[in-house]
């Protein structure tokens, strides 16, 4: 190394601290004697530091909650039997979530009275599903404030970012069916989901029921005086079940989506196929 002039590859390894001590000493001597080599090493050091800084971008909030339901490290490593139980527990929790979602969608109540606004809701969703990015109005107000001002009460608009569904559209509704709210969620794999909140009809049950003749991914339910409709098109059916369960649960509890639900949404999304057009 010290006998010959270091090449570019050597200088990179030198800047990375990857040379053996004797090799590094040889490069150091050559650099000290050659300003051009010194410039190259300085350039490499600056380049490396700048790239490293690029990699230290702030962690998006969407990722911060993902780890919160993971088993403790010692459970997963040091004690095999506890790791097994931890894994079984996590798997059981996820399975329970999916079973609950599936049970939620049993067709027993399918014949229950539909809200008068179901055609209206379907039309709203179809318009959102067809809208090009930028064509539909972007959210101009916080969904909670919109619901308070137009519904007179707070509708639950859950955070579905665990499933990479973000609110892309919030529209107050004023129609023959009363005041309401249309929230459009946009996914990153072609998914469009509508959550529509309008006054409930008395016969609408708390358990979600499929909108008559509207398709398998159009469900409605009631919480208090509000009727909720969750509509999607072309979404993986199992994934839709999990999303529906999450939204339904949030609306019943009037509480934000919790960490377990976020993980369930993320796992469900990871297993699902992208939305069909």
């Amino acid at each position: 190394m010290s006998e010959k002039k270091p090449n570019w590859c050597d200088l990179n390894a030198y800047a990375d601290g990857e040379l053996l001590p004797t090799e590094a000493a040889g490069v150091a001597r050559a650099v000290a004697e050659d300003p051009a080599l010194a410039d190259q090493v300085a350039t490499l050091a600056r380049l490396k530091a700048t790239v490293r800084e690029q990699g230290q971008a702030p962690l998006p909030s969407e990722l911060a909650g993902l780890c919160r339901t993971a088993p403790p490290a010692e459970d997963r490593t040091a004690k095999p039997f506890r790791r097994t139980w931890a894994w079984l527990g996590a798997t059981a929790a996820t399975a329970a979530f999916v079973v609950l979602a599936a049970a939620l969608l049993t067709p027993a109540d399918r014949e229950t009275a539909q809200p008068a606004w179901h055609d209206f809701a379907v039309q709203l969703h179809q318009a959102w599903a067809r809208a090009e990015p930028g064509e539909a109005a972007e959210p101009t107000a916080d969904a909670l404030l919109v619901s308070l001002s137009h519904l007179g009460r707070a509708a639950q608009v859950p955070d579905l970012s665990g499933a990479r569904l973000t609110v892309g559209y919030v529209q107050p509704l004023a129609s023959e069916h009363g005041q309401g709210l249309h929230v459009g969620y946009r996914g990153t794999r072609g998914c469009r989901v509508s959550l529509i909140v309008l006054p409930a009809v008395a016969a609408l049950p708390q358990k979600p029921v499929m909108l008559a003749g509207a398709g398998r991914q159009h469900y409605v339910w009631r919480v208090g005086g509000l009727g909720y409709a969750l509509l999607a098109s072309g979404m993986d059916p199992k994934h839709y079940q999990v999303v529906l369960h999450s939204v339904h649960e949030a609306s019943l509890k009037q509480a934000p989506v919790g960490p377990e639900t976020r993980v369930a949404l993320a796992e469900s999304r990871a297993r699902s196929r992208p939305c069909a057009a």
């Binding site: 690029q54 230290q56 962690l59 990722l63 993902l66 993971a70 010692e74 997963r76």
Partner: peptide, 27 residues
Amino acid sequence: MAGDGNNRLEPYMGRLFGFALSLTGNR
């Protein structure tokens, strides 16, 4: 999990994101 230090994944989330961002150029 943020404060208990037991989670093994969390300390790497930032670097994983930076790595993914560098690979894809797309947030």
